[in-house]
Design a protein around this nucleic acid. Structure first.
Length: 594
RNA sequence: GCGCCCGUAGCUCAGUUGGAUAGAGCAUCUGCCUUCUAAGCAGAGGGUCCUGGGUUCGAAUCCCAGCGGGCGCGCCA
């Protein structure tokens, strides 16, 4: 068990002996913001003192007197208005490093009990090329899934493809009237995108080329598809097949995998009974020819997702589950999907990773689900991220008004990385340089995507996504490669320093600072999982790499006397393991040489 | 109009129950490669945390008002 955890547990008991009625869940032990104060601190005592109208410093002193942590901390300091600062004894740090070196843990613990967590992310649309707008959901969802899985949860990843809906009417009309077979064979996604754009422009009343007959044709094709007409089904399946091939290529490059790909069409057979059930239970009602769910007025109007104010009056803002023409929409599908995930997969938690513009939809969806299945204890989370903007701060478009394809972005990333590798390591064989460029390039894109707070709007910038210096993936990969280089130069297999007899004793300040940071790996992983914020992990790994680099500059490893050398090798090995594991959670690979 | 989010160094952004002297990258400037990889390290400069009130031992963080920006608001997803 990590020292900070033990301190936290004992601290809570100490608080409880003094204030038996206090809620000790707020008593948390966190790393100090400045090592000058200590290694860990709690500021919860100040809050408790306020709640119980006590003198905070006096309470802290009483808690400190009751606290038995002498085995881990030399002494407990009370600072300022009532901070409690803990400084770990070197022996406590060493014990943790030794047990990690023996392979007993890697500075984190499995969650108990594990939960079943469904993660819904990526969800591209069939017949459209994946573009930069898809990276955030894909990379965020993948990282959260990996982190939850590492922490022991039963994670189910599901790619909820947009493979059903209005767009197929236009795609079918286009496929039958303006499709170029050669173009389709050469580049299926571009051709499907072309026919879609062409038809949809002519189905738009606002556009100059509006063609009412074509619009009717598209609607008829859609009805025909949805009623199971064989020719249209065959074309639809072909469009999915071609699209999935593209998705698979991109996901393979990104190293992203899904347990399931249950697109919207999977739920199609269940939509009728979903609406029927909601009507029977009185949750849904008919309105202007559509079936919709209205407010139950259980919330104040300002917080009610089914109300909206217009012209100074609160108006109904219902969730429509069946359109006037009888067709179902994404709300219907999402409700059917929720039922499947809770009832078939027994999800304890479902995480949706989408952009922030869908917040209202998910508020409505979750509210409806809780009214529909009040017995359900599934936790529903909308993990949203900011919009993509151009460098001018306007909604993102290229100069020609197009989006940037994900495949092109990844190509560019690898090309830029190859130029740098070839410059830095011209002696390596080309195949190896290309492999390094792949790992570095893809890693840089992912890291740049995960580094900012997900809720910030996302200003798209080639230079930012493809930068290879400073706080970027290559910096972390470089630290790892240097560690591997030490083992290579010393002709040491790392398992040699992982044995039961391993001794490790960080002496220099740079060694101790690095060692103490390793101990906080688990703390960070839990924060990532509970806050759904991978950027915390980026920050942690960046700090770890910086601490390692300072250690590397100040503390020779191979040239040190045997005992010091052995200890430093252990520290290098553990740092390498945490870096590799941490980067793997971000979906970023490491290299032995770069 | 109403709701959500945002406003922090020249630029791009962090900032973990409110917590200690607000941090990083890029850019600028000064040093450091015959020593385990310089994609690096050490150091410097750079701030009315949008503005004004309030809450309290303590506010970038919470509350109120205002200014500026992005997004959303019945049959698209």
């Amino acid at each position: 068990m990590m020292p900070h955890r033990i301190i936290e547990g004992r601290l809570r008991r100490a608080v409880q002996t003094i204030l038996p009625a206090a809620d000790t869940t707020t008593v948390l032990v966190r790393p100090c913001p400045d090592p000058a104060f200590g290694d860990y601190q709690t500021n919860a005592v100040m809050g408790l003192a306020k709640a119980h109208k006590l003198n905070p410093r006096k309470l802290a002193a009483e808690v400190a007197a009751k606290l038995d942590a002498g085995d881990l901390c030399a002494k407990v300091e009370i600072a300022g208005p009532g901070f409690m600062n803990f400084r770990l004894r070197p022996e406590a740090v060493e014990a943790s490093l030794r047990s990690a070196a023996r392979g007993e843990h890697l500075f984190f613990e499995k969650s108990d009990p594990p939960r079943t967590v469904v993660v819904d992310f990526s969800s591209p649309n069939v017949a459209k090329p994946m573009h930069v707008g898809h990276i955030r959901s894909t990379i965020l969802g993948d990282t959260l899934s990996r982190t939850l899985r590492l922490l022991g949860h039963n994670v189910i990843t599901d790619n909820h493809l947009g493979d059903w809906g209005t767009q197929f009417g236009m795609l079918l009309a286009g496929w039958k009237t303006i499709l170029h077979r050669d173009a389709l064979a050469a580049d299926p996604l571009s051709e499907m995108e072309r026919i879609y754009k062409s038809i949809s422009a002519r189905c738009d009343r606002e556009k100059p080329d509006f063609d009412p007959a074509l619009r009717e044709r598209a609607r008829a094709e859609l009805v025909s598809l949805q009623s199971g007409q064989e020719e249209n089904l065959a074309i639809w399946r072909e469009m999915i097949r071609l699209s999935q091939a593209q998705f698979d290529t991109i996901y393979a490059r990104l190293g992203v995998r899904f347990d399931h790909t249950l697109g919207e069409s999977f739920y199609n057979p269940r939509l009728g009974q979903t609406v029927e059930d909601l009507l029977q239970r009185g949750l849904a009602t008919e309105s202007r020819g559509a079936k919709a769910i209205f407010s139950d007025h259980s919330l104040p109007p300002q917080q009610d997702p089914f109300l909206v104010q217009r012209g100074g009056e609160w108006m109904a803002n219902p969730l429509i589950i069946q359109k006037t023409d009888g067709a179902y929409n994404y709300a219907t599908t999402d409700l059917a999907t929720l039922e499947h995930r809770t009832q078939i997969w027994n999800a304890d938690e479902i995480i949706y990773v989408t952009d922030g513009r869908q917040q209202l939809h998910f508020h409505q969806l979750f509210a409806v689900f809780h009214r529909w299945h009040p017995e359900s204890r599934t936790r529903l989370a909308h993990v949203w991220f900011g919009s993509i903007l151009g460098e001018d701060g306007r909604p993102f478009k290229t100069r020609s008004g197009e989006t940037i394809r994900l495949a092109d972005l990844l190509d560019e990333a690898e090309e830029r990385a190859l130029r740098v590798v070839s410059e830095k390591s011209p002696d390596l064989p080309e195949a190896q340089r290309r492999e390094i460029a792949r790992v570095v390039g893809i890693g840089a894109v992912k890291y740049a995507d995960l580094l900012p707070n997900r809720q910030s709007d996302y200003v798209f910038s080639w230079d930012k996504l493809l930068s290879l210096s400073g706080n970027t993936a290559p910096y972390l990969q470089y630290a790892y490669a240097r560690i591997r280089s030490i083992f290579r130069k010393g002709e040491i297999a790392e398992p040699g320093c992982r044995g039961p007899e391993t001794e490790v004793s960080p002496g220099a300040p740079a060694e101790m600072a690095l060692a103490k940071h390793l101990l906080n790996f688990g703390l960070l992983l839990e924060a990532v999982a509970t806050e759904y914020r991978p950027n915390f992990l980026c920050g942690y790994l960046y700090d770890l790499s910086g601490l390692f680099t300072r250690f590397y500059e100040q503390c020779p490893v191979l040239k040190s006397e045997p005992a010091v050398r052995q200890s430093r090798l252990v520290l290098c090995d553990l740092t390498g393991q945490v870096l590799k594991r941490g980067l793997s959670l971000l979906g970023i690979e490491v290299l032995d040489q770069m």
